[in-house]
Design a protein around this nucleic acid. Structure first.
Lengths: 214, 214, 214, 214
DNA sequence: CATGAATGAGCATTCATTCAT
DNA sequence: AATGAATGAATGCTCATTCAT
């Protein structure tokens, strides 16, 4: 009778299409007015639905909708960034590809990421500690840290605390969206290339310093 | 008859104390459940007030309360970071001091900054673009950019786009709070010192370049 | 998603019925305690609704509800008075029919008119001057003035300032409600017939004048 | 300790002055935004008081303030109209003086009367049935009726139901304020003189009709 | 006499959610 | 599968009134 959260295979085609339509509308609304301002009424209006009841019909509740958005966007994100990073020959190249792929994805999915970022910012205190966005964020950070450790093991990266630098790199990535919000005309190409330089400099083994300090 | 927003000198002692008490309670609540979830009811409860009416009595508006929080925190922030940065002999030292002072302030005012960051994240779509937090954020970024340009002029920093790197550094600073939210046990000392290294590496004139130009 | 103000044809049967029910309850409450005292809570209670939310569900606004009441009552009023006035053979007969029809309508719709009068009295200071009730009142007065001018052109009415006498007649009509409020046991039949005499006397061509011109 | 409603003799000079000042401010505010919109905050602001507490200090409660306004204005009204009516040699002259004095008083005390009219319109349902304004209105009407009866006894007025015509005349008088509200530029002189004519015509003994019907 | 801080009831409105159809 | 009517809790805010000073 009600909102199945089961795997997609159990859904009819119509069901899947409706869910996608609602998620897309919700992403747009959240990107525009924030998660807090994205009422079911506004989302339904944007999606051209006749009633907010349809949202509750397809999603168990608000949290389910929000989680679905995060899952959807992060899946697409992983599908874009993952292969490019995996294809890189060395950890340094992978890190460079990671920044580039992130910038690319942000360019093409700005609203989706703004929405997810807004959701992540607002998901505190839920008690269960395992909101979809928090879990995804943690996994993301772990992967980055592992990449850094591999690079250190192979001598491509200088000696740093991998957790700290992973956090720093994630901060830089997330900061792009913040910058875009404040200044929508930001030149993403220029900023992205500066970011690649910055990340290279902060991770690279210093050419002389290495010898000098030893 | 109500809620004067006049300068603090025009306020009675009681008025100032109550406002401070309410602001403190609001900061705690916002840091915990976000600005959107920080209802007057919750703030009043936290502050031990008998009713939400007292909040409206001391602040004209919800917006007035929010703006007051931002003003209060940013004033304290500027009071801590500003002098330390100003006292530094060179731009590079100033940048290092900036990171250090930020980490210090975040350590001692975590909830205050979480609150302000949450407010800033949620202040979109207002249109006028002149919400208290947006203005403060812009001024902050401009100051950082100017510092970088001075350092470049004095040959302390490598050639980079000052705006981009200013944004990057701000991203790193703001990211601390995000990291603290996800992982409250983060070792701030360790992360702060890694951050200082990272910022030095990303701005410093590369050793070989240094040699070439000398 | 909510509170359509569209034409009645676009409404479902249920919608129309609920709106009518709420309007009827609101009229009763306003007639009793005035527009200012007619809170949604009181109206909902009178209508037997479970919550004030249902009022906001069917009407966009308090203003929308108030305007709907005025529109509804004035439409019924025009539907009763208009044809009777239009059917009269001469302006004098029309004026007589106007008074009679007004008294009739007041008798059968006392509370409705009390409500509308109260709304009209309270709709000041809005500035735009185009509240539903103000517009209706002006149109009403204009029609009355035009009737008087026609009567003067046909020699049925004495020479008077048509605007002034229109205002006077409207004052007499509106005064009925005031009198009914103060003294609910007022004999409307007696008062109505006296009013018809009074209006005839104040507009008729004086007998001697009549004789002179014949 | 608190708001005495006792006779003026028991009040100090300051007390009297403060009450007058508050009443005057309240009259202005009520005339502008209506009784419902005239909050203590607005009245205190208009009167230049530092707190609404001062109003409650001088008046027992809102009803006391409202009643005081009505009493004050109606006393002034009676002081102006009464003597002029009493000085007239005949009932017909008294009635004519009554209309003239009313128009005069309205001209010089427009806001005061608008305030009282608004108060009267909103004073329903109080239960005790004896709100200050209702009592005053009744006394006013009784006096008018008595005047009409005297005129009939002396053969100056035609045979009509004195109560009905008294109500009609009061309606005409009260209507002036309504007209002034809708159209502030109304020519009071012209309207007043038309009103005198109208009242004469509706009360006078018809020159021929009298003979014809007998 | 006067002040201003405090109180708590009441307001219109928004909202996610339920449910009969 | 979808609709739209209904619910009731929650929100920011206004208000008359109280009271210690």
């Amino acid at each position: 009778m009600q909102a199945k959260s089961g795997s997609p295979e159990q859904m009819t085609f119509t069901e899947q299409a409706r869910r996608a339509q609602i998620i897309e509308a919700a992403v747009e609304v959240i990107a525009e007015v924030g998660s807090a301002g994205a009422s079911f009424a506004r989302i339904a209006e944007r999606a051209g639905l006749s009633s907010t009841g349809l949202i509750t019909y397809h999603f168990a509740n608000r949290q389910d909708l929000i989680d679905s958005i995060v899952r959807e966007v992060m899946t697409a994100f992983a599908g874009h960034v993952g292969p490019l990073v995996a294809a890189a020959p060395t950890p340094a190249a992978a890190l460079d590809a990671f920044i580039g792929a992130n910038v690319d994805f942000i360019r093409s999915h700005r609203r989706h990421l703004l929405a997810v970022l807004d959701i992540a910012a607002g998901s505190r205190d839920t008690g269960d500690g395992a909101s979809a966005s928090a879990a995804v964020a943690r996994a993301d950070l772990d992967a980055l840290q592992e990449l850094l450790e591999r690079g250190q093991a192979q001598g491509e990266f200088r000696a740093f605390d991998p957790r700290s630098v992973a956090i720093a790199i994630r901060s830089l990535r997330d900061g792009i969206l913040g910058a875009l919000t404040v200044d929508p005309d930001l030149d993403l190409d220029a900023y992205g290339s500066e970011l690649r330089t910055v990340v290279r400099l902060m991770t690279a083994v210093p050419p002389y310093a290495q010898g000098e300090t030893s």
